[in-house]
C-alpha cells in the first residue's frame, strides 16, 4: 500500500521534461532524482516528499527511450505514477524498473493537486482520501503479470538463462 500526496502535471509530459538530456551523464538514481522534472520547471522536485505520487494526463513519458526517466522518478522518491495513459516505451521502462504505473483514463480528472491518496498496487484500487472517492484501474495483461511475479525483467531473464544452461 502506498500513501502520499498527489502532484499533478499536464498531458504529453515528455522524457526531456522528466530528466533533461544534460543530466544523462550518469546512471546513479540519486543524482538523476535530484534533477527530476527539471525540464518542466526549475526546482519542481523540491515540493515533493518521499512517497508522494505523480498524477499525469494523456501520453505521460512521450519522447525518448531513456530509462533514466523512471529511474529519476524513483530516485526522487516517487514510487507511483497515475496517468490518463502512458507513452509505450516509458510504460515498459517503468514496469521494468519497478515503478508502479496505474492507467485510469478520464478518471484522472477526479484527482487534484495536493489530494491525499492511498494506492493498492495489487488490486489497482486508488483511494482519494481528500475527496472520499475510489478509482479502480485496468489490470496488467497476464504475460506482464508473469514477469512481475518473477520479480521483474531482470529475475525473469536470470530464469530464462538458467533454463538454457
Amino acid at each position: 500500500m502506498y500513501h502520499g500526496t498527489a502532484h499533478t502535471v499536464g498531458a504529453h509530459i515528455d522524457t526531456d521534461a522528466i530528466i533533461p538530456a544534460r543530466f544523462l551523464v550518469t546512471t546513479d538514481p540519486d543524482e538523476l532524482g535530484a534533477n527530476c522534472m527539471e525540464g518542466l520547471e526549475a526546482g519542481w522536485i523540491k515540493k515533493v516528499k518521499k512517497g508522494d505520487i505523480m498524477v499525469a494526463g494523456e501520453n505521460f513519458g512521450c519522447g525518448s527511450s531513456r530509462e533514466h526517466a523512471p529511474v529519476a522518478l524513483l530516485g526522487a522518491g516517487i514510487p507511483v505514477v497515475i496517468a490518463h495513459s502512458y507513452a509505450r516505451i516509458f510504460y515498459r521502462n517503468g514496469f521494468n524498473m519497478g515503478l508502479v504505473l496505474l492507467e485510469i483514463g478520464d478518471d484522472v480528472s477526479k484527482i487534484h493537486d495536493g489530494d491525499e491518496l492511498k494506492v493498492d498496487a495489487d488490486t489497482g484500487v486508488i483511494q482519494n482520501v481528500t475527496t472520499g472517492t475510489t478509482i479502480q484501474c485496468k489490470p496488467v495483461p497476464p504475460f506482464m503479470q508473469g514477469i512481475l511475479d518473477k520479480g521483474g525483467l531482470i529475475p525473469y531473464v536470470q530464469d530464462r538463462l538458467a533454463e538454457r544452461a
Binding site: S65, N93, N96
Partner: peptide, 13 residues
C-alpha cells in the same frame, strides 16, 4: 525503441 533493461534482455536472450 525500448529502454536499456529491455535492451539488456535482448542482448542476453
Amino acid at each position: 525503441g525500448m529502454g536499456s533493461t529491455d535492451i539488456a534482455a535482448g542482448m542476453a536472450l
